[in-house]
């Protein structure tokens, strides 16, 4: 009996967290006729998948999703490729440089992007990289780099140095030791970092807004924001459907790292 208020509180949280999600889902399943009703309904009278097929039929949306995919793939691969050696060196050699690198990771979290985005825009314009996807990839790489470095150097630290030393005692060269001993142990960490960088780029909005002004090169978040346009209510259904689909990559990512979230990763990160 004493637990009743606790359950009531838990229920309140569930309702608060769930109701916008359910509304999004409900909107995505409604027909345009039902959308136009004066009193909106929770459960669609005639649930339809037409909104999803409509969204797929929109040239803009499909093109934008493909561009987002290309940008996110390119920037996540590049991020991991260039941060892996640096992370290894940060974890293995204690030096001034690695301390400065860690300091930069922290500073980059605090500084308002606007202070960087204006000069960056001027630089990119001089390099003719505004309105191009390579330009956006370069920016995304730079801005996921600090956190990716942070994640990766933690994973490198978790691989005992003794293993590497044991390999070289056994006659393996340095490179050989890294490739055949460290790399396999590091693989899950690399995958997690790749996914993190992919999601960061896939979701990113502000840099895309500033650097991509031509509708023909816009990424998915930008296209979604511009989607409704003057037609209003009639386009809300496809918009909701497209929004749901845009969330799928992140949901997969979180499903994968769920277990880590609950146990090790966060606890260790906070316990300093």
């Amino acid at each position: 009996m004493r637990r009743v208020p606790l359950y009531a509180a838990l229920l309140a949280y569930v309702v608060f967290l769930a109701f916008p999600l359910l509304w999004l889902l409900s909107t995505a399943l409604k027909t345009p006729q039902e959308m136009a009703l004066t009193s909106p309904t929770w459960i669609p009278g005639e649930p339809t998948l037409a909104n999803f097929t409509d969204a797929f039929g929109e040239q803009d949306l499909v093109g934008a999703a493909l561009r987002s995919l290309v940008v996110a793939l390119a920037s996540s691969l590049l991020t991991v490729l260039i941060s892996l050696p640096a992370a290894y060196s940060m974890a293995r050699y204690r030096s001034l440089v690695s301390r400065i690198a860690i300091g930069w990771v922290l500073v980059s979290q605090v500084f308002p992007f606007i202070l960087i985005i204006i000069p960056l825009f001027l630089i990119m314009r001089d390099l003719e990289l505004v309105n191009t996807l390579p330009g956006l990839v370069a920016v995304h790489v730079t801005f996921t780099l600090p956190f990716a470095l942070w994640m990766l150097q933690g994973y490198v630290r978790a691989v005992p140095r003794e293993l590497e030393e044991a390999a070289s005692v056994d006659g393996a060269s340095r490179l050989r030791a890294i490739v055949s001993v460290v790399a396999p142990l590091l693989a899950p960490g690399v995958v997690a970092t790749l996914l993190f960088a992919f999601i960061s780029s896939w979701n990113e909005f502000m840099f895309a807004l500033v650097f991509l002004q031509d509708p023909d090169v816009m990424t998915l978040p930008l296209t979604l924001v511009r989607f409704t346009g003057p037609e209003g209510v009639a386009r809300l259904g496809p918009l909701a459907a497209a929004s749901l689909m845009a969330t799928i990559p992140s949901l997969i990512f979180f499903a994968i790292i769920q277990r880590r979230l609950k146990s090790g990763l966060m606890a260790g990160a906070v316990k300093g």
Binding site: L17, A240, F254, L261
Partner: peptide, 22 residues
């Protein structure tokens, strides 16, 4: 509640904005 509590984290900010606009 545990699963629900993580979902907003997994959503792109733009989608969260559009969802609340709805």
């Amino acid at each position: 509640a545990r699963v629900l509590a993580v979902v907003p984290w997994a959503m792109p900010p733009v989608v969260i904005g559009l969802m609340w606009k709805l």
